[in-house]
Amino acid sequence: MAIDALSTADWAAVWLTLRLATVTTVILLLVGTPLAWWLARTRSRWKGPVGAVVALPLVLPPTVLGFYLLVAMGPQGPVGRVTEALGIGLLPFTFAGLVVGSVFYSMPFVVQPLQNAFEAVGERMLEAAATLRAGPWDTFFTVVVPLARPGFVTASILGFAHTVGEFGVVLMIGGNIPERTRVVSVAIYDHVEALEYAEAHLLAGGMLVFSFVVLLALYTRKGVKAWR
């Protein structure tokens, strides 16, 4: 039913949103894991400042983040100059630009659960592994990752869901180009602006159900004790 009800353009927006959220989540796990590990383990005086920067998107209006990213990635910005020099071109109003914006914007939703999970593993497990001849990398993959698995699941779910739900940053950096930067949240905005409430309902209802199911899964899982 929904397949007929949604226009091709709306299906493109759904597909684009899922692609953006997937790419963003994968990048965030790759970048966020070492960052969270460092935050969980370091005694450096940079721990506080770095932790605060990672958490900024939690409190900043997306327009602020979007604005600075736009400037940085623009032709006069430091990132823009590098990407142009590399022959990639400018990132604003491209899918890659959206990914960059989403990675920053969803960062705390991935880093914080991972950091908590790493801290919960505890020093003793690492020491025990070392006395059993496991080097640091070995210990990370055979002890830390399995023990922090619930943290990885939470981080992936939150990172994915938060990226699906973003609007402001996308609008600032990506604009509204069908099939390239027009994600579901922007499409809903367009439908409402055009007074196409039926289409808006379908997409908005879909988002509502998706978000509820994700959070339900998250909260029900937390009740399950993986290991004691």
Binding site: R124, M125, E127, A128, A129, V143, P146, L147, W227, R228
Partner: peptide, 9 residues
């Protein structure tokens, strides 16, 4: 160690 510190997983 004082506590066994077995790997719980």
């Amino acid at each position: 160690f004082q506590e066994a510190s077995l790997f719980p997983h």
